[in-house]
Amino acid sequence: MSVKTLTVNDRFISAREEETILEAAKDAGIHIPTLCYLEGVSEVGACRLCLVEIAGSNKLQPACVTKVVEGMEVSTNTPRLQQYRRTIVEMLFAEGNHICSVCVANGNCELQDLAIETGMTHVRLEYHFPDRQVDVSHDRFGIDRNRCILCTRCVRVCDEIEGAHTWDMAGRGTNSYVITDLDRPWGTSSTCTSCGKCVNACPTGALFYRGVSVGEMKRDRAKLDFLMTAREKKQWNV
């Protein structure tokens, strides 16, 4: 295993060869905003929040799927990136129906946190007001697609950790939405094991425990990482 050295925001750091920029930065205590990234499952580079600048390339790269290279010069927080990220968060808000004040995840929401982190004071884009479905047919969980940002965390945890592959995507572009089984009500799903990993993975208030009230939804993300460590490294650290 060889070690690479690179600079992130003019700081020299070292990283293992197979690491991504995101992992290397994290090890060095450098924060890069993420949204679709979730520890324990594969990276998809879909949300573009972790975009970074790499010297010598005009193209921005998602830190979660870009491997470190010897001598790489990475910038994670340039004005251009800040602008980009703010726009991405605005787009996420404009695309869905996010009403924070009456949302189950109010106060515990990664989208809300990102709005604060990126300094988003308002949405410059037109709201789409999409017509989206709420499904609370499952006896333990519910999904409100108005609050879904299509990060696919639920799809990945269900497929990669639980192995059930209950969740999937349907539709195209802004009309995409997550489905259970073949777009059947969640409560009628024959593949769902009711393990709740998707609920723990969801960054917003889209997936929730049935019966939670406004602002009450809290998640245990560490559970997912714990499971993967246990499975792959046979370590049951608590």
């Binding site: 189950v104 709420v134 409100d144 049935r210 009230s213 406004v214 602002g215």
Partner: peptide
């Protein structure tokens, strides 16, 4: 969902 009604 019913459970959100008090908050709303």
């Amino acid at each position: 969902p019913l459970w959100e009604m008090p908050g709303i």
